[in-house]
Design a protein around this nucleic acid. Structure first.
Length: 221
DNA sequence: AAGGTAGGCAACCGCCACACG
DNA sequence: TCGTGTGGCGGTTGCCTACCT
């Protein structure tokens, strides 16, 4: 299947933008036009990317603030990458998903220029199917590491989640270990430390491997 | 050639958390 | 403390294109 091209998307935008107007509430919905994009970008350049409701009104767009925010973050934002997800990025997505689950915003935070929406779409359309195939190949008994965050204690706990193909799931909790500690224990670490990426390169896989030590090879071939 | 189907992506929806008065 | 507004997030939908029969 050939990818949906940018041109085709833009053609769709114009057509859909007109067709999907919600006249009852006088709020535009559906695809964005190039004119709307330009207006939105101009207003954000002046006022900054905050107070989305104000931005929407200042731009003269019959859009809600949420729609403007989404459009900016997923499409118009500078330095945004679109398409052509590299093998390295793909590998990182898979590893992070194993660690974090469907926390797309957190995963996107590790991939500069990528949006949570793009990663979510990429996962749903590409990786999830391949993961399912891989899991079937590897047998019924799987071990998944699940992250849980204790907001009261500001701690992150990584649990091993053993599941079978029948869907039975049991979560075992063993004694806490220090960060990067015992291989057979759950890991209990500091939230700020865990999500502090300031000292790392954007695609540094070492910290992922620290938690997923059993996976030292690529996921897909 | 025409209709059906799957893939892919943008955008919307609903819920939740947080800030502020 | 409570109500309201706003932003953020994940799930889901809608629609177009390319491929298949």
């Amino acid at each position: 299947m050939a990818p949906v091209t940018k041109d085709s998307i833009n053609r769709r935008k114009v057509k859909g933008g007109e067709a999907m107007k919600n006249t009852k509430r006088e709020v535009n919905k559906g695809a964005w036009t190039a004119e709307e994009d330009q207006k939105l970008a101009e207003v954000i350049e002046i006022h900054g990317a905050k107070r989305w409701k104000t931005i929407a009104s200042k731009a003269g767009l019959n859009r809600c603030g949420k729609s403007c925010r989404l459009r900016w973050l997923n499409y118009l934002r500078p330095n945004i990458k679109r398409g052509n997800i590299s093998e390295q990025e793909e590998d990182l997505i898979v590893r992070l998903h194993k660690l974090l689950g469907n926390r797309w915003s957190l995963i996107a935070g590790r991939l500069p220029g990528r949006t949570d929406n793009e990663i979510k779409n990429y996962w749903n359309s590409h990786l999830s199917k391949r993961m399912n195939q891989k899991e079937k190949q590897n047998g019924a008994n799987l071990t998944r590491q699940m992250i849980s965050i204790d907001h009261q204690k500001d701690r992150v706990q990584i649990k091993e989640d053993s599941s079978s193909e029948e869907g039975a799931t049991s979560t075992s909790t063993t004694s806490a270990a220090s960060k990067g500690g015992d291989q057979n224990s759950n890991i209990n670490i500091d939230v700020d430390d865990f999500f502090d990426f300031s000292n790392e390169g954007p695609l540094n896989l070492e910290w992922v491997s620290k938690f997923l030590g059993q996976d030292d090879g690529r996921w897909f071939n």
